[in-house]
Design a binder for these strands. Structure first.
Lengths: 127, 127
DNA sequence: AATTGACTTAGAGTGCGCTCTAAGTTCTAG
DNA sequence: CTAGAACTTAGAGCGCACTCTAAGTCAATT
């Protein structure tokens, strides 16, 4: 069994996640990383594969408009271990409801925009 | 033909649009109202039905993340009349592309969240 | 050994979209 | 006529999520 050090630097983590190094440090400061990122050379961050996986999921939460504070709540629950299983499950299910609502609102708005575009396409001059 | 004054006060406009009176004044200040809102008694705003219709469409643009500045561009074009027909059409079509991208991103993120929720539902303890 | 570039920290700054305040004016009900 | 609610303005303040700066440390290359 070969032991590969597949942990990466912050700039590599930035490339892998699509975030800036600034944002990665900011998220860590805000307590959004599950376990605290490892350090090499006693100062430079080393992102383990699991850290990358977590950041990628975190960006899914953020891209569905979960506030930083709510993400932190979730992370704090994860740190709480088995005892918080139900709470974490509930938090995600509650968030899911808001995401479906977002999709619905955007879809409704898109329909209104499409209606307006149709007017343009028919040569009508709308506002 | 009966002439009804169906223009409404700012608080009624707020109720009709779901915005606050503060926001309605803010939008007007930012140049987002098509023609300038009428005044009654030489000071209080009177929102005509067309104003309400416009604000409702404007909220569709906003709810699909069109920045205030872009909305203003559109409004400025509308003020430009027939000459800007093509530009307005293009602006809306370009915005449409971003809206579809939003829907796609949120849908992808929702799938990731659902996957996580499934783990909870199966009694697995995820992070 | 020296240079160059990536990294570190704490903290300040930015942009957006509201949201609120204060001081004064106007409308409406009694 | 009066009281109180709703309105007006200009401008300040706020919350969020970054984003950047400064001053210094560390790593890789020549």
């Amino acid at each position: 069994m070969t032991l590969v050090d597949d942990a990466v630097s912050i700039s590599e983590a930035a490339e892998l996640t699509g975030l800036s190094t600034h944002t990665l440090r900011y998220y860590e400061r805000e307590g959004l990383m599950l376990g605290g990122v490892d350090r090499a050379s006693s100062s430079h961050r080393r992102y383990a594969p699991g850290d990358i996986t977590w950041v990628l999921f975190l960006t899914k939460l953020r891209s569905t408009a979960m506030p930083i504070a709510r993400v932190r709540e979730y992370v704090d629950l994860v740190r709480g271990g088995d005892a918080t299983f139900a709470a974490r499950h509930a938090l995600l299910r509650a968030h899911r409801v808001t995401v479906v609502a977002q999709l619905d609102e955007i879809t409704t708005s898109l329909a209104a925009i499409d209606k307006k575009i149709d007017l343009y396409e028919k040569g009508i001059n709308p506002s």
